[in-house]
Simulated assay, not measured.
Amino acid sequence: MLTLDDLLIIQGDFRLSAEFSLPTGSAVAVLGPSGAGKSTLLSVIGGFFAPRSGRVLWQGNDITDVAPAKRPAAHLFQDNNLFPHMTAAQNIALGIKPNLRLSVEDKRAVQDAFEATGLSGLGDRSPSQLSGGQQSRVALARVLVQRHPLVLLDEPFSALGPAMRKEMTTLAREVGAKTGATMLMVSHDLADAQAFADHVVWVADGVAHAPRTWAQVEADPPTGYRDYVGH
């Protein structure tokens, strides 16, 4: 379980508080207006930005001061962070061992990730030889091989067209269900969020609200939600 315990984030004039827990294995959409602090919230959970006060807990253990690389979290960002001089297979293998010295078991994990993300036969291609959707699949496969129980996705598919975004958000959800990972995805697209998530964390007016189901949000929308979705 991920718990944000009396968390307070301050960045200049910006303030954001959070006090909630997420059940293990849940898929959560982080929604809210631009500038509300959605990406900042993920940065704090991932360890890239320190909160002013409060704690980040994973399975009851305080990880607030733990370095990003030592947290049980994998990250997927909008730019995919693929190395252009490496093949798709090498980019995925980096998720297991940065020195690329893979055991037989490691190589099998890379192959399994290729198959799970629909990339079979593309391992020798460089990122420049792949489409935008294929590059996103490589980045998702690298998350998959890391086998971290917490996955943070910060608008990872926003550069793709609507059809490809829907395909990738559905695939990300399937990957999370397969691995049992807890997944949080920042999105500005309601359809993407609905295809991905079973719970919503609404971020607005300095508060990241506790997760609720879509039905709960629609029945009792938080302030600003109706304007956000356009009805």
Rank of each mutant, 00 (worst) to 15 (best):
D227R: 05
P222K: 01
F49S: 12
R147G: 02
T182C: 09
A172S: 13
V203C: 15
F196Y: 09
D205E: 14
Q194W: 12
A141G: 09
G118E: 12
P211T: 03
W214A: 07
A29K: 08
L82V: 06
D62T: 00
L2S: 06
D227Y: 01
A116R: 15
A193E: 12
F114H: 11
S39P: 13
G133Q: 07
D62L: 01
Q11I: 01
D205H: 09
L119P: 03
G35H: 13
A73P: 06
L152G: 08
L102W: 15
W58K: 08
W58T: 03
D62K: 01
P51A: 08
K38M: 06
A191W: 07
P33K: 06
K97I: 01
L57W: 07
R137D: 05
W58Q: 04
Q11S: 11
Y225P: 07
E218Q: 10
G95M: 07
A177H: 05
R137F: 05
H199E: 15
L41V: 05
G180Q: 03
P98Y: 08
A210M: 08
V207I: 13
Q111V: 05
V28D: 08
L100N: 08
G25C: 03
T3V: 04
T170N: 06
V66P: 04
N61A: 10
E174N: 07
E174T: 04
P98H: 13
N91H: 14
P84N: 05
A29P: 04
Q111T: 09
A163F: 07
G12N: 12
Q146H: 02
L16S: 07
S128P: 00
S136F: 10
D198A: 04
N61I: 03
T87F: 13
I10A: 14
Q59P: 05
G118K: 02
R226A: 13
A208E: 11
A88W: 11
K178I: 00
D13T: 13
S17K: 06
V138K: 03
T223V: 07
K166D: 10
G230K: 00
A195R: 05
M1W: 10
K38I: 00
D198Q: 10
V207P: 00
E174M: 01
T64Y: 14
V200Q: 08
G133E: 08
Y228K: 03
S21P: 01
D5R: 03
T223S: 15
G47P: 11
T3A: 13
V44H: 11
N81E: 10
G12D: 15
Q59E: 15
L160P: 10
P98N: 12
T179H: 09
A181W: 04
R55Y: 06
H75R: 07
K38W: 15
I63Y: 15
Q129T: 00
S17P: 00
V203D: 15
Q90S: 13
D198F: 00
G224N: 06
P221D: 15
P68G: 12
L184D: 11
I9R: 01
W214V: 03
G46D: 12
L8G: 03
